[in-house]
């Protein structure tokens, strides 16, 4: 239900993003999805990848400010309106979403979101029989 996302603090300076990506490349880590929350002076680069624990260690060893964050990963049919339906359920349960993004994985839509109300989100997902994926689903690499 939750997967590990890498959160990386990067400055808005040329070369900083490349440095991170090069480390992942050299470690043979595959990026599955990524997004940047940017501000004027820095960004928080969030990414879902194969082997997040190893990626975390490699980045950490290279001195990068990196954290592992637990994020929820819902699996949705790749059809219009599915994201709205899912977010409606979460919202109706009064769960606030800190951030959210989606990507396609194996023909399915994956909706990633982070909340501080993890237990409540967990319960709501089970109650409403929402589909989700976990770490192992991503480990094998995907065919879109």
């Amino acid at each position: 239900m939750t997967i590990n996302q890498l959160s990386i603090f990067i400055e808005n300076r040329s070369g900083t993003l490349v440095k991170v990506l090069d480390i992942l490349k050299q470690s043979g880590i595959q990026i599955i999805a990524s997004t940047i929350a940017d501000t004027a002076e820095y960004g928080i680069y969030r990414l879902i990848c194969s082997e997040p624990s190893r990626a975390y260690q490699e980045l950490k060893d290279a001195g990068v400010a990196v954290a592992l964050s637990d994020v929820f990963a819902l699996e949705l049919d790749n059809e219009p309106g599915k994201a709205a339906d899912a977010v409606r359920i979460i919202s109706d349960a009064d769960i606030s979403i800190t951030y959210m993004y989606t990507f396609l994985w194996g023909g399915k839509g994956i909706l990633i979101f982070r909340t501080d109300q993890t237990e409540k989100a967990h319960d709501v997902i089970l109650q409403h029989h929402l589909s989700f994926i976990d770490e192992n689903d991503l480990a094998g690499g995907g065919e879109n």
Partner: peptide, 17 residues
């Protein structure tokens, strides 16, 4: 930022701000 204090708590601009 100290590397070891950058935890998942800080993975939003709001927290950094």
């Amino acid at each position: 930022l100290r590397q070891e204090y950058f935890t998942s708590t800080f993975d939003t601009p709001a927290a950094i701000d």
